[in-house]
Each structure stands twice: as structure tokens, then as C-alpha cells.
């Protein structure tokens, strides 16, 4: 197994009147090679959760293990861990700083002590894998569009050759096409590099389409953890915590109620189409 959280609790501003429990006794495992989605509304603890994965936040109590080792052990090298668990934050603007794209992507490997040549090699590979066209490599990252910036930011983390990539709302602010492009690229990375991926998202539709496992966060708890199908079957409970299943789930349930023999477990448009066509006898 790759990452394991054991009874992790995290409190903000401990010992003051403003104390707030952001994570409450969370235990979970993320094996190598999984593609997972983390969902929850703002303030549910999902950002705090992912910052535990690479040791940016130290749990108030509990343990975080990477490949079986406690990352808060005395001699543990957390900077190395951060190259293994690559975390890309929501706004690319928070990490881009160099004068051109290529140099910016080199920043990660350079921090790992790679030679200049190796940095460049890794950067070029990462940029290629996120699908940024070569004509942009020597442009200033600040002159790129939102979707392109996002790619550079992902490449910047990817160039450290992580075993796992964690993306905090990688599609925020992008238009529909930009959103699909980024998610398709991430899926491709998952397949070609064989690395595990965790995506934080608000969109149930995207989750249904891409991930194999969904973790739902609410007020520092983890009420659901399972395949999209399992999680969306709790659509009524999801609504109670301010989330919703994909539109498809509602359509399928409504059709079933009206006596149409459709599969209520369908979560994507294509699954729904198949099921409806079958039920209508075509």
C-alpha cells in the first residue's frame, strides 16, 4: 500500500477559543495505482486531508504512513516524500514564478538535486506528457491561458517523478472544454505513468466519468468511501450534507419510479443511454 492514514485528527488553532476540528479520526488507505476522487463542500476538510498526504500538515494526533513508514518519524525525509507524493494546488498562479515555462518546470527536480541536464530532460518529458505545445516552452508562464498555466503547474510537480499525484480542484475556473482537456490528460497520466491519482473536485459528473473510488468529506468526517456507484446510491444522504449525485442518478431513479425498468446504478450519460434503450426495448 502506498499511503495510509491511521486515526488522523487535525485541529486548527489548538488551545484557543477558535479551535476547530478539521479532520476527526480519519483512517484510510490509498494503494498504488488507484484513481480516486475526493469530494466535499468548502470547509469539509478535504484540503486539510490532502495536505497530510505529503507532510505539509502534521496531524494533531494519529499517524500518516508512506510505504509503511511513519512520515513524522524522527529521521524521515519529508522533502523526499514531497517528490514522491506530488501535490498541485488549486491556483497555478501560486506556484509559477520563473521567466519561462521550461525553467519553471525545472524548479522541482532542481530542488531534488538533479543535474541541470537531468532537470531539463525531466521537464521536457513532463511538459510533453501534460500536452503543452512546444512553442510555449520559452514563453513566460504568465502570458499563458488558464488551461495552459494549469498544465505547466502539473508538469512542475510531475517533473519530480512522483508515485502519486494529488490535484486540488484542477478544473476550477476553466471552461467546459478546458476542463475536459485537463481531466483527459490526467487520466492519460494515470494510464501511461501508472501513478496513483487523487483529484479534489466539486463536480459529481466528472467524478462519475473518471475515478474508480470516491471519498466524501463532511465536517472533518468521511461519511462515504467507495466506488462511484456505491457512493451515488446514497444520493439522498448526499443531499442532506449539501452535495448531490450526478443529474443522471436523479433521472434514472425518477424513471424507475415511473415503472421503467432502468438500471438506477448508471452514473454516466453513456451508461444511462444503454440502460434506457434496453428498457424501451430497442
Amino acid at each position: 500500500m502506498s499511503i495510509e492514514l491511521r486515526n488522523v485528527t487535525y485541529k486548527y488553532s489548538t488551545g484557543t477559543a477558535y479551535e476547530m476540528v478539521a479532520l476527526d479520526n480519519i483512517s484510510l488507505q490509498i494503494p498504488d495505482g488507484q484513481f480516486i476522487g475526493i469530494i466535499g463542500h468548502t470547509g469539509s476538510g478535504k484540503s486539510t486531508l490532502i495536505q497530510h498526504f505529503n507532510g505539509l500538515i502534521r496531524p494533531t494526533s494519529g499517524q500518516v504512513l508512506f510505504d509503511g513508514e511513519d512520515i513524522w518519524g524522527e529521521k524521515y525525509d519529508r522533502r523526499h516524500l514531497r517528490s514522491q507524493v506530488g501535490l498541485v494546488f488549486q491556483y497555478p498562479e501560486h506556484q509559477l514564478f520563473e521567466t519561462d515555462v521550461l525553467t519553471d518546470v525545472c524548479f522541482g527536480p532542481k530542488n531534488l538535486g538533479c543535474s541541470e541536464e537531468e532537470c531539463k530532460e525531466r521537464a521536457l518529458e513532463a511538459l510533453h506528457q501534460v500536452g503543452l505545445k512546444e512553442k510555449y516552452y520559452h514563453m513566460s508562464p504568465f502570458d499563458l491561458s488558464g488551461g495552459q498555466k494549469r498544465r505547466v503547474a502539473i508538469a512542475g510537480v510531475l517533473a519530480m517523478n512522483p508515485k502519486m499525484l494529488v490535484l486540488d480542484e484542477p478544473t476550477a475556473g476553466l471552461d467546459p472544454k478546458g476542463r475536459d482537456d485537463i481531466l483527459d490528460k490526467v487520466k492519460e497520466l494515470h494510464e501511461t505513468r501508472g501513478i496513483s491519482i487523487a483529484i479534489v473536485s466539486h463536480s459529481m459528473e466528472d467524478m462519475a466519468k473518471y475515478v474508480e473510488r470516491i471519498i466524501v468529506m463532511n465536517h472533518g468526517h468521511m461519511p462515504f468511501d467507495g466506488t462511484p456507484r456505491e457512493v451515488f446510491s446514497h444520493y439522498l444522504e448526499l443531499e442532506k450534507i449539501g452535495l448531490a449525485a450526478p443529474q443522471i442518478t436523479y433521472i434514472m431513479h425518477a424513471l424507475a419510479e415511473h415503472g421503467l425498468a432502468v438500471n438506477t446504478e448508471a452514473t454516466t450519460v453513456s451508461e444511462a443511454k444503454e440502460s434506457i434503450l434496453k428498457a424501451l426495448g430497442r
Binding site: 472544454k177 443522471i248 450519460v269 453513456s270 444511462a272 434503450l277
Partner: peptide
């Protein structure tokens, strides 16, 4: 709409695809 980098809500897309399949 897709050609203009936009998409439609899932329900609209499903209806559209069903129609394409002759429903």
C-alpha cells in the same frame, strides 16, 4: 455548442443522444 468549447447539462446531452439513437 461543443464546437464552441461549451457543453450542455447531462440531461440535455442524454436526451440528445437518445434522439440520435432514434428515440
Amino acid at each position: 455548442l461543443k464546437a464552441y468549447r461549451l457543453d450542455v447539462p447531462q440531461v440535455t446531452l442524454l436526451a440528445h443522444e437518445l434522439k440520435e439513437s432514434g428515440v
